[in-house]
Amino acid sequence: MATLRISTERCKSCGYCILACPSKALRLSGQLNKEGYDYVANDESKCTKCGICYTVCPDNVFEILE
């Protein structure tokens, strides 16, 4: 079962992944990371682990692992 790992400390809150996610699973969490960015959060019930967030993210926030 694949899992989506989100390195929240790398997120800069740009929102590209939210625009690109075909399942509308991503949103801003409302929480701030150490750099002060409102980092992204995932709705596991919607996520298909398609990897598009990994593709578009400029900051390598997302990884899909076994």
Binding site: E9, T48, K49, G51, I64, L65, E66
Partner: peptide, 17 residues
């Protein structure tokens, strides 16, 4: 279908863009 993705080590350090 899940597509496994791992951050390459050459970009493992957070960037400054």
């Amino acid at each position: 279908m899940a597509v496994l993705k791992k951050t390459p080590t050459m970009v493992s350090i957070p960037n400054h863009f």
